[in-house]
């Protein structure tokens, strides 16, 4: 079992500049902020390294950080073998929100990423099946959980705020 700071050091040694920051000013658990485009490599390292073995992706959530003009993704990872957990965060631009998918590492990420795509429009590169999941497949009015989202007036000829 390792605490978040030790894990951060391991990551920092391995990936150097891709691991950006260790944020401890949180009321609960600290965040490890990493480079968005490296997330798939970091995750496969986290899951395969013997002393880490993060075999389970507990949660994956997209967040719209409109003040910084960024879209972020939070990864809650847990190792059922070593019983430690960490919180990873990546950020990407709102204009071209592209991040690598981690489905190859944890298949459970599949629907979480689809949901993040559905709600925030974050494109997960190499995702096997990136479709809308909760919204209708033909929803064209944007991504509802973005802070600047506005309801369309009509959906397929039906008035939306009925």
């Amino acid at each position: 079992m390792k605490n978040a700071e030790e894990i951060f050091q391991i990551l920092k040694n391995k990936f150097q500049d891709s691991v950006l920051e260790f944020k401890t000013d949180q009321p609960t658990e600290p965040i490890i902020i990493v480079q968005a485009l490296e997330i798939d490599k970091i995750c496969s390292f986290l899951s395969s390294e013997d002393e880490l073995q993060f075999n389970s992706l507990v949660n994956l959530s997209g967040v719209d950080e409109i003040k910084e003009n960024k879209l972020s993704v939070y990864y809650h990872l847990e190792s059922t073998i070593h019983r430690h957990k960490i919180l990873l965060k990546i950020s990407t631009s709102r204009e071209k929100p592209e991040v690598p998918s981690v489905v190859e590492v944890w298949q459970g990420a599949n629907w979480h990423e689809r949901e993040a795509y559905d709600m925030f429009g974050i494109i997960f590169l190499n995702h096997p099946d990136l479709r809308r999941i909760l919204m209708p497949y033909d929803w064209e009015a944007g991504y509802p959980l973005r802070k600047d989202y506005e309801n369309p007036e009509y959906y397929q000829g039906m008035k939306v705020p009925y």
């Binding site: 949180q26 009321p27 507990v58 959530s61 919180l87």
Partner: peptide, 18 residues
């Protein structure tokens, strides 16, 4: 300001609130 992930054992499994 900050974030929290709280989880409980729901009848169906791990219910987490982020």
């Amino acid at each position: 300001v900050g974030n929290v992930y709280g989880r409980v054992e729901n009848p169906r499994g791990e219910l987490g609130y982020f």
